[in-house]
């Protein structure tokens, strides 16, 4: 097909314009507003006790969620690919559920389950607070990030097949040795990719977390909650911009890492 120069330039303008208006402009505005008063102001805004606490909390949640998702994600992927058991089809569907369910719904469901008067609400009596505490935010984040590791590892397991694992077993390796020496190295790129996606999603989670967090600055605010609170509650527009930029910076770092890893993976 022969497209004329005008059509070509026209199409390009539309595509670029679309991206610019939807993604470029909002990010540009935030960056502009953030750095307009100078770096010192930016630094001051993100180093208040509330901001530092929010950053720490966000990283803490990521630090708890990632190992849990790695263990259960790899286990679930192996179960789905390698084992035949009743309920496998149901499990397959359940893994995708977090993609389909809105995070707000997840938050509400968790309150119904763990909150005062919920099925497991009695646990509050023991002094272990799930809702409006760290456990609730962790559970909510696990829920929304559950599919990433499973769905990244699964196709890799399919691709490598069972031959290598069987070969290892004929050579005397126990299941555990086979997993560490054969399976894990074989799936490591898929796993890494899944972890990166999990980190990005866990950092950015808002809907589920706001439902189960008490939202006290310096105590139970994650970075996303901080952005929200500064803007809506405190009318601290600049503070919201600065916190948003920090959040974006971390996400960008993760994205960059992912791109580098992806390149490395396709090199192999």
């Amino acid at each position: 097909m022969n497209t004329s120069a005008t059509t070509r330039i026209g199409l390009r303008t539309i595509a670029l314009g679309y991206l610019l208006v939807l993604i470029g402009l909002p990010i540009g505005v935030i960056l502009y507003r953030t750095f307009e008063p100078g770096l010192a102001t930016f630094y001051a805004s993100i180093s208040t006790p509330a901001a530092i606490s929010a950053l720490n909390l966000s990283l803490l949640i990521v630090g708890i969620v990632v190992p849990i998702n790695v263990v259960f994600g790899v286990f679930t992927a192996i179960a789905l690919v390698r084992w035949r058991f009743p309920g496998r089809g149901v499990l397959q569907a359940v893994v995708d559920l977090p993609f389909a369910v809105s995070p707000v719904v997840v938050g509400v469901a968790l309150i119904m389950l763990w909150g005062a008067g919920g099925w497991f609400g009695a646990i509050e009596g023991t002094g272990f607070r799930v809702i409006f505490g760290l456990p609730g935010m962790v559970i909510a984040t696990i829920f929304v990030t559950l599919p990433f590791v499973v769905r990244e590892v699964e196709p890799v397991l399919h691709e490598i097949g069972e031959d290598q694992e069987q070969a290892a077993s004929t050579l005397g390796a126990s299941r555990w040795q086979t997993f560490w020496r054969i399976t894990l190295p074989a799936i490591r790129w898929g796993l890494t990719y899944g972890v990166v996606l999990t980190v990005a999603r866990a950092l950015g989670e808002f809907g589920a977390v706001i439902m189960v967090s008490s939202g006290f600055p310096g105590v139970s605010q994650t970075l996303t909650l901080l952005v929200h609170a500064r803007y809506i509650d405190d009318h601290n527009t600049y503070g919201a911009y600065a916190a948003a930029t920090l959040l974006m910076g971390i996400a960008l770092l993760v994205l960059l890492l992912m791109t580098v890893l992806d390149r490395k993976r396709s090199d192999r």
Binding site: D163, Q164, Q166, A167, S169, T170, P185, A186
Partner: peptide, 29 residues
């Protein structure tokens, strides 16, 4: 189980440990 049968097995599609060198493959057992 296969581990305790005293066997060596060779597969049609080699089942080479892809992330290991030839030396490490042979040394595995």
């Amino acid at each position: 189980p296969p581990q305790r049968r005293g066997i060596g097995f060779v597969f049609q599609h080699y089942a080479a440990f892809k992330h290991m060198t030839v030396r490490d493959n042979v040394a595995f057992g």
